[in-house]
């Protein structure tokens, strides 16, 4: 199976998010970077499918030069090839993102035939647009289903499970297809030492981002106003139990 995974580099903020003085991005000076948890699981799922069915895993990102770090991470856990569309712009609109990614995917497919499966995250951690994967699917004329927490490939068909309240739904897509996965589909592995060495030496194919059109423009970011709560400390250790049970009674829970 030939599989491609789209990942996006995002900061990994802690308890609070602080913004840059121009309010256009997260102040990431003291932060590390990651890909969205959904995408981390997409990479893991691709590697598991490769281990089952053979084939290759390619990871693709549109981001700044530093986004190489996330591609190398994917290689360290088992991806084979890495592609970067290098951009200077910040916050590229979802339409423009999808155009750049699908154009690059078409180039990579070239005379080699389509990727059997393209995996994306259900939504990016930062922009949360819920749409880049769907737009890629339309551009390439392939089926896509979102929100997937289980995948099986059999006889050129992809069986996908989606969790809903009280159970799950099953979809069956013909290959080639695109699937947007959610965290929980698997538990991602950690890189091994040989994996890290391979990642260090790997070649990241890089092309420059050509500006694309899009109709949603970010103007600025703000942190929501936090309501100030005065915390009522009910006590320390086991001695707090009666006060806690009083509270449960007050709230009508017992």
């Amino acid at each position: 199976m030939k599989i491609l995974v789209c990942v996006k580099r995002v900061p990994a903020p802690g308890a609070r998010i602080s913004l840059t003085p121009d309010s256009r991005s997260i102040d990431a000076r003291h932060l590390s970077f990651t890909v969205s948890p959904h995408e981390e699981c997409a990479v893991e799922e691709a590697i598991r499918l490769k281990e089952l069915h053979g084939g290759t895993v390619t990871v693709l990102t549109l981001g700044n030069a530093e986004a190489e770090e996330q591609l190398r991470y994917a290689i360290s856990v088992g991806a084979d090839e890495a592609d970067l569309i290098a951009a200077h712009e910040i916050d590229i609109d979802p339409q423009a993102t999808a155009t750049a990614l699908s154009d690059r995917i078409s180039d990579l497919e070239g005379g080699n035939g389509p990727f059997d499966l393209i995996l994306v995250g259900n939504e990016s951690a930062d922009a949360g647009g819920y749409q880049v994967g769907v737009r890629i699917a339309h551009a390439l004329g392939r089926p896509i289903i979102n929100g997937i927490k289980g995948l099986k490939v059999e006889n050129q068909t992809i069986e996908a499970r989606r969790e809903i309240d009280g159970g799950f739904e099953i979809y069956r897509l013909p290959i080639p297809a695109i699937v947007a996965v959610k965290e929980g589909i698997n538990l991602p592995r950690y890189p091994t030492l040989p994996g890290r060495l391979r990642a260090k030496k790997a070649n990241v194919r890089t092309v420059d981002y050509q500006h694309q059109a899009g109709g949603l423009t970010m103007v600025s970011l703000a942190t929501p106003v936090e309501q100030q709560t005065a915390t009522r400390v009910l006590g320390r250790g086991a001695d707090a139990a009666p006060a806690v049970v009083d509270l449960f009674e007050e709230l009508g829970l017992l």
Partner: peptide, 21 residues
């Protein structure tokens, strides 16, 4: 940020709450 808090080891606090209930 919570409305109510108990400061302590949950492994001691939870059993105490359960037996109080």
């Amino acid at each position: 940020k919570a409305d109510y808090a108990v400061i302590g080891d949950l492994h001691e606090v939870l059993p105490a709450i359960i037996s109080e209930i």
